[in-house]
Design a protein around this nucleic acid. Structure first.
Lengths: 232, 232
DNA sequence: GTGCACAACATTGTATACAATCTTGGATTC
DNA sequence: GAATCCAAGATTGTATACAATGTTGTGCAC
């Protein structure tokens, strides 16, 4: 759809965000990125706008593009949407999973384990997402995959913001895959919901943990205090 | 998010596609559009790419952008996805529809009736879509609305391709709204599914009605015949 | 007459230049 | 010393120019 050059830039920036090399609220300056990739601003601009359409970055007119910093509220919406889509995916896949697709998913789980044990944490996280996406792909409905790709990307950012760094939920995928393999629709659905709930509940969504990272929010209640304190 | 200028161009082109002023597979030439709107190619280009991200147009590199022409297969996927999302929307809205939201939806239904009776067919179609979108908005989860907006737009194109021009399903919306108002989750869900199924089944999805409009497809089986006929 | 090569054209892809807007720093005024 | 205004800088938004690519038409060879 887009030119191969743009596709490359898109993948690079997206991966940088997902691997937390670019943290939420960090600015994406077009000229800087253009220089890094050895191209002009034009293709970079297109990519940034595409990422904005996917809500991975937020554009403020005449100010700049920033890595999105989902609020707790938005994060909950993302996981709610994931539940809806992934339940539909699981239910559908239960009825017609080919051997080939099964093998692919099983291998992903194995790779995830290996990365986990090898301490390659970002690879493990990436593969975790790939499992969900591959499952969506197996459903045969491209919209499940398309929308889930967006939601999974956002999940990475959300976990970066509110999650603890350790990831453990490995067996869940295997259990889900087993249930699907056996065509156990209701069990597979239940397991998927529990799995997603587990991820969501591992996040620090209590108010005190909110990390807005936008300065306006951080110092929102300061104004009244300034001037009343004793500054030496 | 995008500049107001681009937003205007976006709305205009999108509406033109939805009102069938631009038919599937028609090319969107950037310079032509730019001239129409009195701007340069740059903002038009951004809009076209945005529409491509929404699958409303298809870009072929170095060739052009064309109004999408969903296949029967893709159309079915769109309606499957709609069912999943809209069922979730309806179930959620059942539990917390405010009076204000109810009034808004009731008024949309009324407007739809008026447009229908007044013969303003495209307005009626537009309002039909607005009802579904407004319902999604009432759910409070912006992702329902975001994705549904895409799917509803595509539905217009699909109906343009495979549907008959008469639209009748008016009472459905009222029945759904009543069920929601009464908090009847299961009935509301059933009605929504039936409603969407009705729309889908009103489409001519039999093979003989497929209108690909891409010339390669139209004349796919011609080659063998050429030369064997008697051309005077 | 048919098939192929090449050139002209149309259209998109990319780079660059300029305009619009926001932010920041300093000078001026009180 | 504090507040305000204005100018300089930084960054994005838009327009234009040029390069890459695909399409179409024409002429030549056979």
């Amino acid at each position: 759809m887009a030119s191969p050059q743009e596709q490359e830039i898109y993948q690079a920036i997206k991966q940088a965000i997902m691997e937390q090399k670019m943290r939420p609220n960090m600015q994406l300056v077009e000229e800087g990125l253009a220089e890094s990739f050895g191209v002009s601003r034009t293709p970079v601009r297109n990519v940034v706008r595409r990422l904005a359409a996917e809500k991975l970055v937020t554009i403020i007119p005449y100010k700049g593009a920033f890595v999105s910093c989902p609020t707790i509220h938005e994060a909950r919406q993302v996981f709610e949407m994931r539940r809806v889509i992934e339940v539909a995916v699981v239910r559908k896949v239960c009825t017609h999973l080919t051997d080939e697709q099964y093998q692919l998913l099983a291998r992903l789980i194995q790779e995830e384990h290996q990365a986990q044990h090898g301490g390659r944490i970002f690879e493990a996280i990436r593969i975790t997402g790939d499992f969900h996406l591959q499952l969506a792909e197996a459903s045969g409905n491209s919209y499940y995959h398309r929308y889930l790709e967006e939601l999974v990307s956002l999940s990475y950012v959300i976990i970066a913001l509110y999650g603890e760094q350790k990831t453990k939920c490995c067996d869940d995928h295997q259990l889900i895959l087993n249930a699907i393999r056996q065509g156990n629709v209701d069990i597979a659905e239940r397991l998927m919901i529990e799995h997603l709930d587990e991820i969501e509940q591992a996040l620090h969504f209590e108010e005190q943990y909110e990390r807005p990272l936008s300065l306006t929010d951080i110092f929102a209640n300061r104004r009244s205090r300034v001037g009343s304190g004793s500054h030496s």
